[in-house]
């Protein structure tokens, strides 16, 4: 697979996915003639601790739940964490850098999820060598995943704007910018949006633009109502891009990470439902935003409730 060919495949991913005829659902494996189209999605934010890994894990699970073949890659070299959130930390034998260095095959390094058949995790290396990743190395791994028939590749970016973050976004077709309704996170997101429009392969080629979406996390509708927290509209207005999901602030996120279960798989959870909605929107559905309005409470509940 040459560089050129794989890129045009990727660029075509969206329209083809939408126009996919219902009949093709019956075909279990795509034939050689109708190659699977791959979309590379970076989950990024600039600021740390806003929920990039939580989001990467949940989006990957959500897509896999809908039968998509998904690989989720941890780009945070030196600070591996996606494996913990996915609950596969004890099954990491080889990592991303091992694949790039040729210490193992990609197949050996991909960790198959125990819950979802079509979901695979590629762990970050724990090396302290910052230059372990290279543009060519990353391209090679992405090309191999594309050739292997993966439909979605989720790149979980490290915080910051250094090399790891740059490489995570470089080959992206689409970007999910995770943002908290809080000043430093919003400002950093704008910085990341600037990089997405200049330091990605699509931007450098000048042919197409990386599709950008905001995903708000730790949203607290009650505090928005009382004017203590910026609203979805405020953040959208400042950053000027569309919102693909709003995830409410919830103890469920910590419980899920404690257990090593991506929060989208939690039962009876607003957070899980909000992530499911975001996955649907990613697949082209139009849905109203849920969990952005404070649920009505009686006076007594407000006074004595938690």
């Amino acid at each position: 697979m040459t560089d050129e060919a794989s890129i045009s495949l990727v660029a075509d991913a969206q329209p083809a996915a939408v126009e996919e005829p219902a009949a093709s659902n019956k075909v279990a494996q795509p034939s050689f003639r109708e190659r699977v189209l791959t979309e590379i999605i970076v989950v990024t934010s600039g600021k740390g601790g806003v929920g990039k890994t939580t989001t990467s894990a949940s989006l990957a699970c959500g897509l896999a739940k809908r039968g998509k073949k998904v690989a989720v890659i941890d780009f945070d070299i030196g600070l591996r964490n996606l494996d913990l959130i996915m609950g596969c930390e004890r099954r990491v034998v080889y990592d991303f850098v091992n694949v790039i260095h040729g210490d193992c095959t990609l197949k050996q390094a991909l960790i198959k999820d125990k819950r979802l058949d079509t979901l695979f995790v590629l762990a970050a290396s724990q090396t302290r060598d910052k230059d372990a990743l290279s543009t060519e190395g990353v391209r090679k791994v992405l090309d191999d995943l594309i050739a292997d028939g993966f439909e979605y590749i989720i790149c979980d970016s490290p915080a910051g704007i250094e090399k790891g973050a740059h490489l995570a976004m470089y080959y992206a077709d689409r970007a999910i910018v995770v943002v908290n309704p809080e000043v430093s996170s919003v400002r950093d997101s704008d910085r990341i949006l600037g990089l997405l429009s200049s330091k990605t392969q699509l931007a450098e080629k000048g042919e197409a633009k990386v599709k950008e979406h905001l995903l708000l996390t730790r949203y607290n509708p009650r505090r928005v109502t009382t004017g203590e927290m910026m609203s979805v509209e405020d953040v959208k207005e400042i950053l000027g891009i569309d919102v693909i999901g709003v995830i409410p602030e919830s103890p469920d996120v910590l419980s899920a990470s404690n257990a090593g279960t991506p929060v989208i798989l939690a039962s009876d959870s607003d957070v899980a439902d909000a992530y499911e909605d975001a996955v649907s929107r990613l697949l082209g559905e139009t849905l109203p935003m849920r969990f952005v309005v404070e649920p009505k409470k009686g006076l007594l509940a407000r006074m004595f409730g938690s």
């Binding site: 919003v186 600037g194 400042i238």
Partner: peptide, 22 residues
Amino acid sequence: RRQPATANVAKERLRIIVAQER
């Protein structure tokens, strides 16, 4: 004891700094 409504302050500050940085 309600927290003061500071969201508008945040929005205004961000609007200015983001425009400047852009």
